[in-house]
Design a protein around this nucleic acid. Structure first.
Lengths: 347, 347
DNA sequence: CTGAAAGCGCTAACAG
DNA sequence: CTGTTAGCGCTTTCAG
């Protein structure tokens, strides 16, 4: 691989000049520029990113921490992040923590601040102390999908009003006339999805229902998890006419469970999820869900991270004011085929 | 972030010595080592990866080129690649080409050899010329899922016998008694999936059938694509009893189409796919498919890349012998609920 | 066993 | 306008 000085030699000037023309710094004579450009072309020169990073004191990548890229929601998000990162001149490093805080820590320690300029964190079961440590080392951190806009996490974040999402889902069911609704909370880590469930409860209350009366099951955030939870729910509470799930994957599982129990969705059972992942459109029936602004969140996260990077000139911590919280636009109900009014008005 | 020399100062020695203890080079006195380790600990020192990369002339990352990480197959593969990369000391950069050869080229030119030591290529619609160019610049390239083990592509690759996969799928259908089988070829780029279709034809021939008699549709490699193709196929050839799709996503689409046409799968129509992605287990009915050794392919790809990296000491091209081809273990038929013997023996 | 010195490829002042 | 001079943080001979 040709280097700057090889280009310089060929163009009959110094590396500094070549650098200048390449980055449009300092004025360079038209003729010199011309010769430099030719030399670059002839040699097929490409700047050495590691060298540049070292000299500039900044890295050309950002990291995305995620528990497992194989969860169908993450790739959609990752794709949007990558696009945004790309257009701000960064490459994306994917860090699968596999739900293991130690793996997460190892990643953070190794790349934050040396290979990656900043870190984006999707639900990845990380230790907050580790995150603060990486911040302190000079690598900004942004939480990508904070669930409670009004309860800041003590770290910069983009927040989605998931409580509202829960409300919207529940309201939809209530408006259709459902009164006996089972809830599935997909809480891998404690507390995650709590806001969504809170919203569900809000809506029930607002409709004058006793929320304690609605049966709940916790499940893993997978189709399987939702499948099992639904079967349990329906076995113990056969009179349920609808299922509210805090995420699409378990909602999809509910669809399967219903099929296996001989229930027609939405005729015998309505199902609603949250997020609106790709798959939600592809199930049979298609899933009614509350769409979360994924792409917007990804873009906000990257631009917030960028801002923080710019604002921390070589490791100087920003003043100790409260970390920024960016709020996305509101989640929106998407009605598809998995919900309708309950069949029997009397239960 | 503390640097090597800060550690050295604190430990009362020189950077060179610190470097030595950290990488177990050159002998270091037990006592010095002790002090160095303490200093490292006290300062929370972490090596600066970009600096190390520059000094060593090697990069700590590899790149995975993929057309879009949002295609459900890729994340599964990417996860396996990341694990393998990790355990060989590399980080993974995800490069979504978005099916755009120009985007792919831009990636290759920028990172190959400077940020990434090597490049893994999933079907990403890249220009082979670009790949050869990046090889020539000193960054090894490995194709991750070459479809024809016996027709080497002129680049190092890991090959999966997809022709066999096609055969297995077709044989399964034939053994069940199907004779009127429609084929869906999911060929985003020309020729991709051709091997799978060839295998299908092989099996038909072997069974004494006229392959020309089996209707074929080309489709995009998506559920949607499979959906449309299936509807077309069934409208023009209502007597079909089975659908063979070259990939799982279109096969899943076939399932949906059947449902919309009022056909029971597998009772009225059998469907078989290839790959065995996660989703294949989750459809209703679950999809019969030919499983491809994804994880194995990912691991082979990374280890082949590693080998090539080691073998090319700083950009010296290996001798011009034919590039290596690693062959994975054979694809295997996985029978699930979407296939059974055709209902009417007479069509 | 440890230190001194050179350099990886590039950028960033500051002179000329 | 262009060249000179220092590094960025680390590794790596090669002396001591």
């Amino acid at each position: 691989m040709p280097t700057l000085s090889e280009v310089a030699r060929r163009a009959g000037c110094t590396p500094a000049t070549v650098s200048n023309v390449l980055r449009n710094r300092g004025r360079v004579g038209a003729l010199t520029r011309q010769r430099v450009l030719e030399a670059v072309e002839a040699l097929g020169y490409q700047p050495h990113l590691a060298a540049r990073a070292l000299a500039e004191g900044r890295a050309p990548t950002i990291a995305l921490m995620v528990s497992s890229i194989a969860n169908p929601f993450y790739p959609e998000f990752a794709l949007a992040v990558e696009r945004a990162a790309r257009s701000s001149g960064h490459f994306l490093i994917i860090c699968n923590t596999n739900e293991d805080p130690l793996a997460g820590r190892a990643y953070l320690e190794q790349i934050a601040g040396t290979l990656s300029e900043g870190v984006l964190v999707m639900n990845a079961n990380l230790d907050f102390a580790d995150l603060h440590k990486t911040e302190a080392r000079g690598a900004p951190v942004v939480l990508c999908m904070w669930e409670r806009p009004h309860e800041p996490p003590g770290l910069p974040c983009v927040a989605v009003d998931f409580r509202l999402a829960g409300q919207l889902a529940a309201q939809h069911l209530l408006e259709l006339g459902h009164r006996r609704i089972g809830a599935i909370v997909a809480s891998k880590a404690a507390g995650i999805h709590a806001a969504r469930y809170d919203g569900f409860v809000d809506a029930l209350r607002a409709a004058g229902l006793d929320a304690a009366q609605a049966p709940v099951r916790h499940a893993r955030d997978t189709t399987q998890g939702g499948y099992r939870a639904t079967r349990e729910l329906l076995e113990t509470h056969p009179q349920l006419t609808a299922i509210f799930a805090t995420n699409d994957l378990p909602a999809l599982g509910a669809l399967h469970a219903a099929a296996d129990l001989g229930l027609q969705v939405p005729h015998d059972l309505s199902v609603v999820g949250i997020t609106d992942i790709q798959l939600a459109q592809e199930s049979r029936p298609a899933l009614t869900t509350v769409a979360v602004p994924t792409v917007e969140a990804a873009e906000l996260a990257v631009s917030l991270l960028r801002e923080l990077i710019e604002a921390s000139p070589r490791g100087i911590r920003a003043a100790a004011k409260a970390p920024r919280v960016c709020i996305t636009s509101a989640p929106k109900l998407v009605v598809r085929g998995s919900t309708q009014a309950p069949r029997a008005e009397r239960s």
